[in-house]
Design a protein around this nucleic acid. Structure first.
Lengths: 348, 348
DNA sequence: TCACACAATGCAAGCGCTTACATCAACATC
DNA sequence: GATGTTGATGTAAGCGCTTGCATTGTGTGA
């Protein structure tokens, strides 16, 4: 078809090749691809068949350069190893695909400096918009984003006091509701193992929800042991052991997420403590681990998929610049399973 | 600095802005960024400081267009929701980052047609190389990749009989080794729950490893029940129930992966069967679930991180075109925990 | 002193695409 | 029949960067 057979495999067909072959201008080919209705059907069919024959595919770089947009959405998540983000991302990607958008993922390993770099990298690579987890980051980054006019949505949190557009649930309220359950079971000596709160507003809000609930119940929050630790099953186990070394020891240990709770559960078993007979344990997130753990973990179910899907829709709307957007609040539901029980009678 | 303050926020600085400000040509700025040693140190310092002042960042599209490469590696995995791929990808990305490469991830939901489309999309978006899982895909795709000269490596499998460059472990051998363990425990009526084998060579090889082992042990493979199902805890549970409805029922159920095994474990508990007292269960992969399950799952530990890291290194080598590459074989190790026990005496 | 090698830098031609604008034909209107 | 309108298509100017080649300036050996 084009040129000799010799260099057939050397270079890829370009718009111009298609145009020449179809006997039209490059502009027409471009229009066939990008706004088909602006081209006569007959012409379009001819062009498209050449496109097909030649196996033509537009060059991404050239397109990005000329059109000043890439149809790429960037997402920076704390880690890929955590099922909660993975699930949300999956839904996010599926929804984006429906709109012809591609997802570019980076993970920050929960490190703010890495996250900042990732954001800049993604923008430099032409991401048209961004999905970010949580509000916690320097003002400098938000300024950067605003200056470049890059739309973004914050996911996994809903906090009415922060004006940025977000989609998520109220971590504070959810943890408070779960804590109320624990309190209603008669527990008063409650320990908590929380994820790092320094640059993680989800963790912080959960902790505050916990504190608010106990205080409302007339318990002095300062009297309760708080163990802060990094993410990981082993850290949950260690944290649990530390909390249980107090005397008198807690009758319930609440955890900032399911992974920590599973670690706690394992340690309880190693220490020969019955759950919930001797001690109650709760988690947060409702990942697969939670229902598989034994006994099945009492936790909070977070709408991961809905958040992912919703975030994608919001971003699409923002890019189309149609309706003015506001934050979306989703519900996180209590998931009462088997690790929460009444406070042991010989409690004191 | 540049232009009036009014449109300061409108357009981003370009190479030309930097060049003008630093009093050099665009070529020199470009060289400062790409091959610093070809520029006088003094000049370079001046240029870099302007780059910094202006907050200049190269435009990805333009760079890709001019340089004909993007420093992007694409990866298509079956699903993000499976911890095994997530972990491997994390390591893969970390290693790529060390070499200034960015990762573009897509997931195919285990669907060959989707995977093919994703591959084309990633290539169209300029991925310089690809990470693929398993060998199973149409020859057409391999031809496409070869024609475009796109380097790729196949991960999660090692199969000496296939010439494509890969990094992984021998699924067949690993499953055979695990099956030998089961056989050594005296089991002869062994059922297996396998993932879909149609377009998944990992699953198929595991199944074949199982069959090879039992046959070698003098058992007719055709006499053993095989249950094939999609991925998911619930499917594992259903499969287990189906297998256990046979009479006489199996004394051991081996599963193609940990997720299925965890489902089986749950169903065993629901059916009031003791594990491994009444029935032994095994998994494959050694994901977190496996050690958290109760009893802890006997499984095969797969070197996820090593595969990810190794795949990245291989791809880097291929892009640099340095050494000629060959496939890498990693070891998968048996992970004997608590769900495999001796065959019950009243077995027959 | 002159020719020459070589290092540092500049010049300018693209890379493949999009899109504002120009062109043209076909038709309707008065 | 002259004029205006409209829709389909072509023309060509970039988008921001890399890089082969040309130019300049410096140090070298004969």
């Amino acid at each position: 078809m084009r040129q000799t057979a010799d260099d057939w495999d050397t270079s890829l067909p370009t718009l111009e090749d298609v145009a020449r072959e179809a006997g039209v201008s490059t502009a027409t080919v471009s229009r066939c691809l990008n706004s088909p209705d602006r081209v006569l059907e007959e012409t379009r069919n001819r062009v498209m068949s050449v496109v097909h024959d030649l196996g033509y595919a537009p060059n991404f770089g050239a397109r990005a350069l000329a059109a000043k947009r890439t149809n790429t959405i960037g997402a920076i998540i704390p880690t890929m190893e955590n099922a909660i983000f993975a699930r949300g991302l999956q839904a996010f990607q599926e929804e984006l695909g429906l709109h012809g958008l591609t997802l570019l993922v980076a993970s920050s390993s929960y490190r703010p400096d890495v996250e900042e770099e990732q954001i800049r990298t993604l923008i430099a690579r032409g991401a048209d918009a961004l999905l970010l987890i949580g509000h916690d980051r320097t003002q400098g980054i938000y300024d950067f984003l605003d200056r470049r006019g890059v739309p973004y949505v914050i996911a996994w949190v809903y906090n009415r006091s922060i004006p940025r557009i977000s989609i998520g649930f109220d971590n504070h309220a959810a943890m408070k509701a779960l804590t109320d359950q624990v309190l209603n079971n008669g527990h008063t000596r409650i320990g908590i193992i929380t994820a790092d709160t320094a640059s993680n507003d989800r963790a912080r809000e959960r902790l505050e929800g916990f504190l608010a609930a106990v205080e409302e119940h007339g318990i002095d929050p300062a009297s309760l042991p708080i163990h802060e630790t990094a993410y990981g099953i082993d850290n949950g186990a260690t944290g649990f052991k530390a909390l249980m070394s107090a005397d008198p020891r807690p009758t319930a240990v609440m955890c900032g997420n399911d992974v920590l709770a599973v670690g706690a559960l394992r340690m309880a078993s190693e220490m020969g403590l019955a759950v919930p007979g001797d001690v109650s344990i709760t988690g947060f997130d409702d990942i697969e681990l939670a229902q598989v753990a034994s006994p099945a973990l009492t936790t909070v179910h977070v709408p991961h998929r809905a958040m992912g899907r919703g975030a994608a829709q919001m971003l699409v709307d923002m890019l189309e610049g149609s309706r003015p957007l506001e934050s979306t609040r989703l519900e996180a539901e209590l998931c009462l399973r088997d690790t929460l029980g009444p406070c042991p009678i010989d409690s004191d």
